[in-house]
Structure formats: structure tokens, C-alpha cells
Amino acid sequence: MPIYLYLDRETFLHRLNPSVKVFALFVMFWSVYWVDQPLALVPLGVLLVAAAEFTDSWPNFWRLRWLFALVILFTTLAWMVFYRRGPAVANLGIIHLSHASLLFGFGRGLKLAELLATSVLFLSVTKVEELTEGLTKLGVPYRAGFAIMLAFRLAPLFIDSAVTVAQAQRLRGYQFDRGGPLERIRRYVPVMIPVFMGALRKANNMAVALETRGFGRNARPTSLAEYPTRWPDVAACVVLAGLAAGYFLIYYAGYGAIAAN
């Protein structure tokens, strides 16, 4: 099973400078923030669909299809409980079903789904080292960036370990799905202790191996990776800035809000 979402393709979006990708992520979040009206969110949705097609990221979206559906459904329902505005169409207990609450809840559900889609796209075209490079450019210290990269590298190893341990305990007749919630959560003890102890055994060896490779010898290590800024990066930034400004104008002009009554 693929663990991370990154898809190794040679597209324009894959080749963008990591800082531009982080900027794109920010612009999408910014644009979504200013509007609640579902119609106003449609252009962003179209843009995301086009990007997904262009980068052939559909396998990742398919993998997360249920998450998208549930996010929209439950966010809509949650807001219909708290956004009690507009005349109620039907009496559904704690849910206030009105045109306004439905529109508002759906809008926020759509917002969340678009944000999720943005992040899936970002992860489909960005490698872990590009992310840490982007973070370092944003001022995150080298050692913190390294810890993030190392954690990303270790997580799949520990997942494999956790799955193996769970298999080993099952073969000793152990059942994880017995009892109520408290009992069920407690039944993870025989899995988590071996995984934990295995990780700790590694910790000391890793620290020693790091020191022997000169970790900490220089406060400002250099980098093998190069991420030059090319004209497509500049062009992408201009388009993204336009998108951000456009969505702020939609908000400013009052087209992004939902009439409550």
C-alpha cells in the first residue's frame, strides 16, 4: 500500500519551486477563507479539478473519496445544528433545516472539501524533501527540518512494525475487537509496547550514527538539492496573486456571503 500521497510524474506543477508550491497552498486557503457562498466556491473547484486532471492525481482523490463525502456531509449537518437562521422548513430535532442553514452548512462543507483537495494536490506533487526545503526557506531551523524529514522516513518503518506486531499477537490468539470502547482501546497495549521498545532501541543507534556523520559539526550545513526559480515559477506567482486578489474582491463586493434570511 502506498503510504504517502506523492505521485512521481513530470508535470509543470511537479516542477514548480517548492516555495511557489507553498505559496499556492496559502493562496488557495486565503481564497477559500473569504467566501461562504457555494456558488462563489465553484471557480476554485473547477481549478482544482483541472489541476487534478493535469497532474493525474485522481488515484489519490479516489483513495480519499469517502473522506471527501463525509467531510461535506457532516460539516453541513454540524452547521445546521448551530446556524439556526432563516425560517425552518422542517422540524428535525436539533437540526435546524432552513434554506439559509442548508446553504451555509453546505458552503462550509464545500470549503473544507476544497481545502482538503488543495492539500491532496499539494502532497501529490511535492516530495518530503521539497516540503522541508520550503519550510527552511520560511525560516524553520535546520535541525527542526531534519527532524521532520527523519520522522517522515521512520513512520513507514514503524507502521510496518505495528502491522507485524498486530499479526504476531493475533497468532497468539489475541483479539483486538472485544469489549466496549474502553476495553477496545486498552487492548492495543500488546501492540504498542513492542513498537515503542523497538523504536527506542533504534533511537540510540541513530543518534550515534548521526554524530559519526558529522551532524552538529556545522551550524549552517550546505545543501545538495537545488531549487532555482524559473520563469514558470514567476508566472505561477502572478496568477496566484491575481486569484488571491480576485477572491478578496468577491468578499469585498459582498458576493461571498450568504443572506441569512
Binding site: 524533501e129 517522515f152 543507534n205 548521526l210 556523520r213 558529522g214 556545522n218 550545513p221 545538495l224
Partner: peptide, 26 residues
């Protein structure tokens, strides 16, 4: 334990890791 001495996400970066720590020119 080879898993405990590999820290990076690509082969080239792994080899470069110690050189980066020495602040070697690219």
C-alpha cells in the same frame, strides 16, 4: 542496523548528508 543509519529520502541526499554537515560547496 542499516535502518538506523539512513536518514534521508533519496539515495543522493543520503550520500550527501555528511558532506552537507561539513558545509561543503555544492
Amino acid at each position: 542496523d542499516f535502518e538506523a543509519q539512513l536518514f534521508c529520502t533519496t539515495v543522493a541526499q543520503e550520500v550527501a548528508f555528511a558532506l552537507e554537515q561539513m558545509a561543503m560547496e555544492r
